[in-house]
């Protein structure tokens, strides 16, 4: 328990450093956002007024304090272009991203682990060889080239699934497939290799010599592989996050990725900052939960 608390403390500390790093990097950006919003012809007094409104005229430490308070209370200021609070923008766009990320991670975990363990168990069999080649090929198509190909096959040629818009289950199938395929391929390779690594351990021999059936051995092997798989999922989360953002821009899904993308294009700093901070916090939270789960599953891993 004490170890978990220590870990939680460490997580908060890294989160604090991360949030501060975002502040420093975004303040180091050359170019005044105020001038960008008001345009080159803005009158000096307008600029001064707007800077005061944004709180940019205060000393840097005060700005930093306000910024930290804003992060904690969720008040990230107002979008420079949409005239809406960043908070409301984010909560509006959060839904699709969370749905996409969770469903795809869930499906990929199940699919990838399942296929990987079958492949590893029947090592060097037909299924193993075929699935290795297929996973290698799928890993070599990045999301942004996989998505247009899938759209071409399923929407243009076959006409089964609709593209773009975000309404209903049918519209979410293609984006989900796009996200699930590469993640399953990674997880399949990881779980297969981990299974084979563990299968050579003495404890497996003991179980076998005790007369346990293949299924019972496989069940225990799967349990041992689980922390590694969860860890890879945690590491892959940042890839999933990037993937979701790219998928959203391809399929016109109004999620966080879309918000970030528009924010970058418009140089809408409060929005960019808000999206980055919240994604980082969510990401670190999940990372911590995965760590905690792992220590519960496998007591050898110190929390």
């Amino acid at each position: 328990m004490q170890e978990s608390l220590k870990k939680l403390g460490y997580s908060f500390f890294t989160m604090f450093i991360a949030v501060s790093a975002i502040f420093i990097v975004l303040r180091a950006t050359p170019g005044d956002p105020v001038e960008k919003v008001l345009g080159a012809e803005a009158k000096p007094e307008e600029i001064v007024k707007y800077r005061a409104q944004l709180g940019l005229d205060q000393p840097i430490l005060i700005q930093y304090k306000n910024y930290l308070v804003g992060v904690v209370t969720g008040d990230m200021g107002e979008s420079l272009f949409k005239k809406q609070e960043v908070k409301t923008l984010i909560s509006k766009h959060m839904g699709p991203t969370v749905v996409l990320a969770f469903i795809s991670v869930g499906c990929a975990m199940f699919l990838g682990t399942f296929l990987g363990i079958i492949a590893g168990f029947k090592r060097a069999g037909v299924f193993d060889n075929v699935s290795r080649i297929i996973s290698l090929i799928f890993l070599s198509f990045p999301i942004f080239s996989l998505a247009p190909i899938l759209v071409y096959i399923f929407s243009v040629k076959l006409g089964i699934l609709p593209v773009s818009e975000w309404s209903g289950v049918k519209h979410s199938i293609l984006p989900l497939i796009t996200l699930i395929i590469p993640l399953s391929a990674v997880l399949m390779r990881v779980s297969r290799n981990k299974l084979l690594e563990e299968a050579g351990e003495p404890w497996v021999q003991v179980l076998k010599s005790k007369g346990l059936s293949e299924m019972q051995v496989l069940k225990r092997l799967t349990k041992v592989c689980l922390p590694t798989i969860l860890n890879v999922v945690a590491i892959q989360l940042s890839v999933v996050l990037a993937g979701t953002m790219i998928t959203e821009t391809i399929f016109d899904i109004p999620g966080m990725g879309m918000l970030l993308f528009e924010g970058i294009q418009n140089r809408d700093y409060p929005v960019v900052q808000g999206v980055i901070i919240y994604s980082t916090i969510i990401y670190m939270g999940v990372y911590f939960i995965v760590d905690f789960c792992n220590s519960k599953i496998d007591p050898r891993i110190q929390a």
């Binding site: 991360a18 990097v25 975004l26 996050l241 994604s279």
Partner: peptide
């Protein structure tokens, strides 16, 4: 720290600087 940050976000931030 760099590991824990989603790398595409780091790249975006650096590119904006």
């Amino acid at each position: 720290l760099i590991f824990i940050f989603p790398s595409i976000l780091i790249a975006i931030m650096v590119m904006s600087v």
